[in-house]
Design a protein around this nucleic acid. Structure first.
Length: 114
DNA sequence: CGGCTGACTCTGG
DNA sequence: TCCAGAGCCAGCC
C-alpha cells in the first residue's frame, strides 16, 4: 500500500502524492495541511505547504484544488491577493467564513473533524 | 554535491 | 493574545 511507497524505490514524487490527496477533497470541503500530512507517510504539514507553493509554477493549478487546503486554525495561510483569490474560490463552492475569516471544520471539514 | 527557499504546526513563556 | 524556536524535506539553481 501507500506506506511502503515511502522507500527509496518509490517512483512517485512526494509532491505528486500530495496533489493526489488534495484532488480527492470534494468541492465544498476543506482539509488542513496537517491532515494531509498525516495521510502521506513521511510528510509533514510544512511539506504540504511547500507542495502547494510549488503548484503556482506549474499548470496543474487547474487540476489541483489547492484552495481547499487551509491551516489548522481554519484560516487561509496566504496573504494579500493570494488570500482574496483563495477565499473567493472557496466561497464559490459554498464554504462560509466567519467575520474573522475562519472556516468551521465541523461543517466544512473534509474528514469530518469531530 | 552545496546552498537557498517555502501557502505549517505545536509548545512554552 | 502575541512571539520565538524547533521539527523537517523536496525542488531548483
Amino acid at each position: 500500500m501507500f506506506a511502503d511507497q515511502r522507500n527509496k524505490n518509490n517512483p512517485t514524487p512526494m509532491y505528486q502524492r500530495i496533489y493526489a490527496i488534495v484532488r480527492q477533497i470534494p468541492a465544498g470541503k476543506v482539509a488542513t495541511y496537517g491532515q494531509i500530512a498525516r495521510i502521506v507517510p513521511g510528510c509533514d504539514a510544512r511539506m504540504v505547504g511547500y507542495a502547494m507553493a510549488a503548484l503556482r509554477d506549474t499548470n496543474e493549478d487547474e487540476a489541483v484544488p489547492w484552495q481547499r487546503v487551509i491551516n489548522s486554525q481554519g484560516k487561509i495561510s496566504l496573504t494579500g491577493e493570494g488570500y482574496a483569490l483563495q477565499r473567493q474560490l472557496l466561497e464559490q463552492e459554498g464554504i462560509l467564513f466567519s467575520e474573522k475569516g475562519v472556516v468551521d471544520f465541523n461543517e466544512f471539514g473534509w474528514l469530518g473533524m469531530d
